[in-house]
Nucleic acid binder design. Structure first.
Lengths: 116, 116
DNA sequence: CCCTGATCCTTGCAAAGCAAGGTACCCTGT
DNA sequence: ACAGGGTACCTTGCTTTGCAAGGATCAGGG
């Protein structure tokens, strides 16, 4: 009962999912890194940080799932904007299927059955 | 050797979840390790192996979430049976809430919106 | 000309899944 | 009696990835 705290959520949950959440955020259009951090921070339970996002974006770029372009900022140094590639879009679509399968499996296992 | 192809596996998805799937499998009653591996293997997308389950169970035991007892097997060497502790049960219940929150967040992010 | 803030990035660590390898026990067939 | 196979236990080493901490660079205001 003492547990009503907001509480340190299991960070490991985000493993393997964060990557695709980032790709999904890029679906509507290009974004830069700090913008993504803020957007993810605003989603319940999706907190992340720069130390996570930059290596992540580097991997996505290395694997050809995103492309980047520099644009000037209205105030501050230039920003590197990330954009989905066709490959990235495909991979994301494919992930959605895997995610749903996985999600349903976990639901089935961990959510207690109703006792009729 | 033979480094795992990152392409083929949604393996990282299981991170941080498998632990609780195991706890959930112990809810109805005690189980032994290989039995858990088979049970998880039968669930869609939840494949795992001995090299995963034994360290995992050791951690659970170390953290007081499960207790163990040896029982003889009808045929073969004795088995170590794992059973939920009160702490384990609490932790599992707590996880269910976190899981639902996280699951909904990912759903919201990655599943494309209907275009009305 | 420095200070603050925005933006980029890297380094080093820890957690956890997995393949592969190793040991021990018990039953059955010869 | 003992060899072989199936069951069960566990460990080692590798890899991936989230994160904290640290650092570099640029623009504008006092």
């Amino acid at each position: 009962m003492a547990a009503a705290r907001p509480e340190a959520l299991p960070g490991q949950l985000r493993r393997g999912t964060l990557e695709y959440c980032v790709l999904a955020l890029l679906r509507p259009g290009e974004r830069y890194a700090l913008d993504l951090v803020r957007e993810l921070g605003a989603v319940d339970g999706m907190v992340t940080s720069e130390g996570t996002i930059y290596p992540l974006l580097s991997r996505l770029r290395r694997d050809g799932l995103v492309e980047t372009a520099w644009h000037e900022s209205p105030s501050g140094p230039p920003r590197r904007y990330y954009q989905l590639t066709a490959t990235g879009r495909d991979r994301l679509d494919q992930f959605v299927g895997e995610w749903i399968r996985f999600r349903d499996a976990v639901d089935l296992l961990v959510i207690p059955k109703e006792i009729p």
